[in-house]
């Protein structure tokens, strides 16, 4: 890629427009923290420029620039609608700078909450996968049990896991353990069902080649059946992961004392919508980051599949 290709992009124009808009006089009487907005925009621009030089593939560069371009455009419109022209109710719609300043101010509290939420998710998710995959392998391999287990897992996975919360509260001592329990259930059934369907649908040709090689039983399960079912297992894991986040934040809004869902609920109860919006954005970023990391893992393990 030429330097021109890397640098002459609309995204940078949008960045300039965002900065120029900040020169307009403020119409809003509230504290708008233009400095925080500019700091964020400049930081993002610097990261984007660095990324433009490091990215090797043309498509990923375009994607990066398009995404950042959208963010700059949204910030411009948001800034115009609040700070500059005061079109929206300032209580419900804080200025963008205010949200960034709030994040900076609350960062420690926010990190503690993120850690709490992630801790629960990872615990429930890993525990569920660690039980569901071996069990699914075993039952799926055992043709007779597999048929029955498929129907049973269909039944249980049709129950929205959120309805387990009240029962979980009665059953378990702490709210944290209830959350882990619910995420465990939310992940367990899709991963279990995915593993079983993966095992039961392994290409007969693959099984036949393993058979004529006289692969011994345990190795058959772990070196042949498991990798052959891995795509389906990941399908179940992805489903479990996305449901887990929905569940966890809902659960945190019901009764937790920390976590990102709690942060959002707590401050919206007080009418502090700046913090509410800050929390929403943080949750979005955390979910995207976790999903991205998980997808990288999946890509690595399934790189043989195109």
């Amino acid at each position: 890629m030429t330097l021109k290709n890397r640098l002459l992009r609309v995204t940078h124009l949008l960045f300039a427009i965002l900065l120029l808009v900040q020169l307009l006089p403020d119409r809003s009487s509230n504290d708008v923290h233009t400095g925080a907005l500019i700091a964020f925009a400049v930081g993002l621009e610097i990261l984007t420029l660095a990324g433009s030089f490091l990215t090797k593939k043309k498509e990923s560069l375009s994607l990066l620039l398009d995404i950042v371009g959208f963010i700059f455009a949204i910030l411009t419109v948001w800034s115009l609608a609040t700070t500059k022209f005061d079109l929206l109710n300032p209580l419900l719609f804080p200025a963008p700078g205010k949200v960034f300043a709030q994040f900076a101010e609350d960062r420690e509290k926010i990190f503690i909450n993120i850690r709490s939420s992630l801790g629960i998710t990872v615990k429930g998710f890993v525990l569920a996968s660690a039980v569901a995959v071996p069990l699914g392998l075993f039952l799926g391999w055992n043709a007779r049990l597999g048929g029955a287990a498929t129907y049973i897992s269909k039944f249980f996975s049709s129950i929205p896991p959120i309805v387990y919360i009240p029962y979980g509260i009665a059953l378990l001592p702490t709210f944290r353990s209830v959350s882990v329990f619910v995420i465990f259930l939310a992940t367990f059934w899709p991963v279990f069902a995915g593993t079983m369907s993966g095992v039961m649908h392994v290409d007969q040709r693959i099984i036949d080649s393993a058979k004529v090689l006289n692969v011994p039983k345990p190795e058959m399960l772990f070196s042949v059946i498991l990798p052959a079912s891995l795509p389906q297992i990941f399908l179940g894991c992805n489903q479990g992961l996305s449901v887990s986040f929905i569940l966890l934040t809902s659960a945190e809004m019901i009764g937790a004392r920390d976590g990102m869902g709690y942060y959002v609920k707590y401050y919206s109860d007080f009418g502090d919508y700046t913090r509410t919006i800050t929390g929403l954005l943080v949750i979005g970023i955390v979910v995207i980051a976790v999903t991205f990391l998980f997808n990288q893992l999946q890509k690595r393990l399934l790189k043989w599949k195109h």
């Binding site: 040709r205 036949d208 080649s209 090689l213 006289n214 042949v224 052959a228 043989w304 599949k305």
Partner: peptide, 25 residues
Amino acid sequence: VVFQHYSLFPWMTTRSNIAFGIKQA
């Protein structure tokens, strides 16, 4: 055995496929 259809394990590289066969025999 060599089958009429392709019978390699798709998650193993070519040489791992062969080495895996050798290991069994």
